[in-house]
Design a protein around this nucleic acid. Structure first.
Length: 501
RNA sequence: GGUCCUGUGGCCGAGUGGCUAGGCAGAGCUCUGCAAAAGCUUCUACAGCGGUUCGAAUCCGCUCGGGACCUCCA
């Protein structure tokens, strides 16, 4: 069974076939480092990290490019053009590049917390000004952009007219009808430089107070919002590549404009498969700056935001995100996060129990159970291949958990399931949880000093219990519980422990 | 106003026309010195109204609610 993904461009699930066999080029829109990343940003980066991991697992050699936008965005159309980064820099009295570096570092820290693999290439907008200027020049030469007062705008009308005839109208990705847009776009001020409201900036003339500025054929300025992704994806992945990813809110205008720019330069639609993750909402509303409802990642991990009842471990967030399908909205609440935290703990303990099971049993005493396990395991690939349904994968792993636990705790006979089936479970749990989903234990349970101390306490308690000195044994157990360490008496007389938050 | 998505049990969330998804929470039981953990059992669903169909959470229509985008957005 082959991998199918939902392609926003065609609005249907399609079999994924790379342009060059065995290789995948994937571009994902990265962060704008003018501020700290919030929970909403975590979703695309975790989603596409899983895409990246799964493609590699399938044997593809993947080049994963995720940019860092460190220059050139506008605060808002209709207002005086100003670079977000330089504006904030003035407020905070920092060098623009110092600010960019600070938030880039924080972003990298958060990505590492989530156990996201670093992309193959992480290009910055400021590092590719030359490429962007070259691309703009090319678009002007082809007649699809014009200069006005030191700024350059993309001629959307002309592009739409010419490329509609070639089956590539402006709006093909987002399903927008340009004519309707023209009638309904809200009134904007200071648009006199543009020939049409739908035109977008490729290059903006920098006003004197602007700190970030570069020389260009049109004077000193800075690049428009969309051109960096076209320039960098073309440079590192070629004129046509396999996957372009990002949040649904980037579909229009950002990705639409990317398509227009790249198509003029390269005469083909840049990416074959466009994947968009849905939004994280809070009380049903998208988490975003404009709603003033963002929870920064550092606040989430530390539990410092007023709305948070407790800190949440990065792995809890990752698990929470993977428990839903990436194209559905996902609603944040303390209750939902807490349930994810408990659920992951339970699943992880089943995974740890699984690793302790023997694989020696030659044949299954309970063939029905053995077959059920086989079935649940076989479905894991089906679910991933069906547009990366991580939610269904986790549901199946949860169905396996009681089977594992009951064997481990003796409620089900040890020989009920064949050793080969146990081995396969061990392999699949490791594969899906750790390698593909990128999950890892919330705490390292292999801290030698702590483990040694606990073992000492466990031994003392065991002695006390053997003397029926329950006062002492309960004291040890209860005081450890107060410290967040839970002792569990196993059926076989051994004692295990786990750390609660 | 335009384009599109969505409405599932106390909460989150998956659902390919027929076969109880799953998680968290609740209840009961087993095990246990007592617990915890674990296992077993169990209660609440498909916004409303029509239609198609032998059969609809799923397809179609209407109504109501929620949301996204329409040039800052992940």
């Amino acid at each position: 069974m082959s991998l199918k993904v939902y392609n926003s461009l065609t609005r249907q699930k399609e079999v994924f076939t790379p342009i060059i066999e065995g290789h995948v080029g994937m571009y994902v829109c990265g962060p704008t480092v003018s501020g700290e990343s919030h929970l909403g940003h975590a979703r695309p980066f975790i989603t596409f990290d899983v895409v990246y991991r799964y493609l590699m697992h399938l044997g593809y050699k993947v080049r994963y490019v995720r940019n860092i936008t460190d220059a050139g965005h506008f605060e808002e159309e209709g207002r005086e053009a100003e670079d977000k980064i330089s504006k904030k820099a003035a407020v905070e009295r920092l060098e623009p590049m110092e600010l960019v570096q600070k938030y880039t570092n924080l972003y990298h820290w958060a990505m590492a917390q989530f156990n996201n693999l670093p992309p193959s290439i992480e290009p910055t907008a400021t590092g590719h000004i030359v490429e962007q200027i070259e691309m703009i020049k090319k678009i002007i030469e082809d007649g699809y952009a014009y200069e006005a007062n030191g700024s350059v705008y993309f001629d959307v009308e002309k592009y739409h007219r010419d490329y509609s005839a070639k089956g590539m109208p402006y709006g093909m990705l987002s399903g927008r009808n340009l004519d309707e847009q023209l009638d309904t776009t809200r009134e904007l001020d200071n648009q006199e430089e543009k020939r049409n409201k739908s035109d977008f900036a490729l290059w903006k003339n920098a006003p004197p107070e602007h700190i970030m500025r570069w020389a260009s054929p049109w004077g000193e300025g800075f690049p428009g919002w969309h051109i960096e992704c076209s320039a960098m994806s073309t440079k590192y992945l070629g004129e046509e590549f396999d996957i372009h990813g990002g949040g649904m809110d980037l579909q229009f205008p950002h990705h639409e404009c990317e398509i227009a720019q790249s198509t003029v330069c390269n005469h083909k639609t840049p990416a074959r498969y466009w994947l968009h993750n849905n939004m994280i909402t809070i009380n049903g509303k998208k988490m975003g700056k404009s709603y003033n409802n963002v929870i920064k990642l550092s606040e989430l991990f530390a539990g410092t935001h007023p709305i948070l009842e407790q800190p949440y471990h990065p792995m809890t967030i990752r698990f929470f995100i993977l428990q839903s399908h990436y194209r559905s909205t996902l609603d944040f609440s303390n209750e939902a996060l807490q349930s994810a935290e408990k659920g992951m703990k339970r699943l992880w303990e089943a995974y740890e129990n699984l690793q302790k099971l023997s694989t020696d049993n030659a044949s299954a005493a309970d063939t029905a159970l053995d077959q059920k396990v086989q079935q649940l395991l076989a479905e894991l690939y089906e679910f991933m291949n069906d547009d990366l349904n991580t939610a269904k994968v986790l549901a199946n792993l949860f169905e396996l958990a009681p089977i594992i636990n009951s064997i481990r705790h003796g409620q089900t006979a040890a020989n009920a399931v064949a050793g080969s089936t146990i081995a396969k479970m061990q392999q699949y749990f490791h594969l899906f949880l750790e390698e593909i989903f990128g999950l890892k234990a919330e705490q390292a349970n292999d801290d030698n000093k702590l483990g040694g101390v606990l073992q000492l306490l466990i031994d003392i308690r065991k002695d006390a219990k053997s003397r029926k000195d329950y006062v002492t044994s309960d004291k040890i157990r209860n005081e450890l519980a107060t410290l967040g360490i839970q002792l569990k008496d196993e059926k076989d007389g051994s004692v295990s422990w786990s750390i609660n938050n």
